[in-house]
Nucleic acid binder design. Structure first.
Length: 492
RNA sequence: GGCGUUUUGGCCGAGUGGCUAGGCAGAGGUCUGCAAAACCUCGUACAGCGGUUCGAAUCCGCUAGACGCCUCCA
């Protein structure tokens, strides 16, 4: 029996604006798609937060026993800068600036993306498709939408006819807009565009002469519109209707709105059952963004090379900092907040390291079953990592009280306690125990220190003490070897 | 201007119509040769103004601030 059968998971659905009981299309299986990065620069911490939020979702779904297919794309083409820019591809633009091949830019930043997410201990998705690898699929969708009369071709570009779509469907269903408002409010902004209406979005863009990334199509050489790739790749790997679609809050409109429209026309169905949106990471009172320069890179945190932080912070402390907030809340990034989080993280890890010091007894005075239940309930309530962590600190308190023998625990309960802590701290939250990783270095330092103290004893001809140090270390499996150059040691 | 979100104690951050997370910082205490850690206790916060209610920080309205989207964006 899998855990999902006894745990009622609730997910906040952006589409209904309410928490709903999660029920997958196919029992025991979950299809999840998350909009990935555009690989034209290093991922900043704000990007990382979103991917970490969905990493938490992925991890918890797996913990509940679901078989999860997690698809996250790499946008390596087709990202329109803006309409006035004659559709110059964002990646091509950067490539020209740096005088290198577009795919070289893509490669460089894809590697950076993977390295960064690995450092912060995100699990890799099940499938990570690229936009350039799915040009054919995208062209097929465009043909289909054209054939159904919901798009039109002009000068080698194809646009989705939003107004026509809106006659029978609601364009704006996800973001809570209606097209009429939007017409009134964008009229002044747009100049002469080849689009029929400013609201229309590109499915295919004609490539100008200088444009490097281009593919042949029935409408001439060009490249696909940004919104299309997600529709193509999500439905290709997860089916026409799948369970979860995630992304940053800032993608809700127009990106996700457009995805819904494309799928509704092509497949005549609402593609996604649960829309999840992760909230923004705020720096200096505003969201982190590449375009405004208001951002910090993960590596700048890990090395401490930046003007914002007083010191370096480990990936784990950084991850803990983010996990302390709920994924749907705006989170403020600051030195004080990170410092506080780091201390909390260390407190948690220190407690886990002390688990072995607990002596089990016959009966338990702490209610491990209830506590475990509260941990699951926190996560079942729309992945509330914040409340989960509060419960974990309750567990820290238990550990300390048990060591001080102010509480007691049975062997069976202790095993469950230990398993549950490990499950939530390492498997679900995805934290790593940095303190443990440093342990071997510290052990070396410790033995060096004893060698020094033993030398002092020997210099004082305190043979009793020096022999005691050597013998007791030997019992621990640490052998001291006195040589001409001083004392060395080996650990068995 | 439109749409949406939000405003919690010194800081970060959960949450609920009445039993009022958690972390960090702070105060007092226990323990300790000293210290640290740990444990116990404490501050009694929910933008402002109205309303609904036996009762609201939690529901509704208004006001103010902040943020996000409306253009590429995690």
């Amino acid at each position: 029996m899998e855990l999902y059968e006894t745990n009622q998971l609730k997910i906040y659905n952006s589409l209904s604006k309410s928490k709903e009981i999660f029920k997958p299309v196919v029992e025991g299986n979950v299809g999840m798609y998350v909009c990935g990065p555009t690989v034209y620069s290093n991922v900043h911490l704000g990007n990382v937060r979103t991917f970490m939020s969905f990493d938490l979702v992925f991890r918890y779904l797996k913990q509940l026993g679901y078989k999860v297919r997690y698809v996250r794309n790499i946008t390596d083409a087709g990202h329109l800068e803006n309409d006035a820019d004659e559709g110059e591809d964002r990646i091509a633009k950067k490539a020209r600036l740096e005088k290198i091949e577009p795919m070289e830019v893509v490669q460089r930043y894809t590697v950076d993306f993977h390295e960064t997410l690995q450092k912060i201990n995100n699990l890799p998705p099940s499938i990570e498709p690229t936009a350039t690898g799915h040009i054919v699929e995208q062209i097929e969708i465009i043909k289909d939408i054209l054939q159904k009369g919901m798009a039109y071709e002009i000068n080698g570009s194809v646009y989705f006819d939003v107004l026509k779509y809106n006659e029978t469907e609601h364009y704006g269903i996800l973001s809570g807009r209606n097209i009429e408002d939007s017409i009134h409010n964008t009229r002044e902004l747009d100049g002469q565009s080849e689009k029929k209406n400013p609201q229309d979005f590109a499915l295919w863009k004609r490539a100008e002469e200088k444009h490097i990334m281009r593919w042949p199509s029935p409408w001439g050489e060009g490249f696909p519109g940004w919104h299309l790739e997600c529709t193509a790749m999500s439905t290709k790997y997860l089916g026409e209707i799948f369970d979860i679609h995630g992304g940053g809050m800032d993608l809700k409109f127009p990106h996700h709105e457009c995805e819904i429209a494309q799928s509704k026309v092509k497949n005549k169905v609402n593609p996604v059952n649960y829309w999840m949106h992760a909230n923004m990471l705020i720096l200096n009172g505003q969201k982190m963004a590449k375009s405004t320069g208001n951002y910090i890179l993960p590596n700048e945190i890990f090395t401490g090379e930046n003007n914002i932080l007083s010191k370096a912070f480990s990936p784990s402390a950084t991850r803990f900092f983010m996990m302390q907030a709920h994924y749907r809340s705006v989170l403020d990034f600051s030195n004080d907040a990170l410092e506080a989080a780091e201390k909390g993280y260390i407190k948690l890890m220190e407690a886990l390291n002390k688990l072995d010091n607990i002596e089990v007894g016959k009966v338990s005075s702490v209610n491990i079953g209830d506590w475990k239940q509260r941990c699951y309930e926190a996560m079942n309530d729309d992945f509330n990592s914040s409340v989960l962590i509060a419960n974990l600190f309750e567990g820290v308190k238990y550990i300390n009280l048990l060591i001080e023998k102010k509480e007691t625990i049975s062997a069976a309960d202790f095993k469950e306690f230990q398993n549950t802590l490990n499950t939530f701290v390492f498997d679900v939250l995805g934290l790593k125990n940095d303190l443990e990783q440093n342990a071997s270095e510290k052990l070396n330092g410790l033995v060096e220190m004893l060698i020094k103290m033993r030398k002092e004893a020997r210099d004082n001809r305190d043979w009793a003490l020096s022999d005691k140090i050597r013998d007791e270390l030997a019992v621990l499996g640490i052998q001291l070897k006195d040589g001409k150059e001083g004392t060395t040691f080996s650990i068995n």
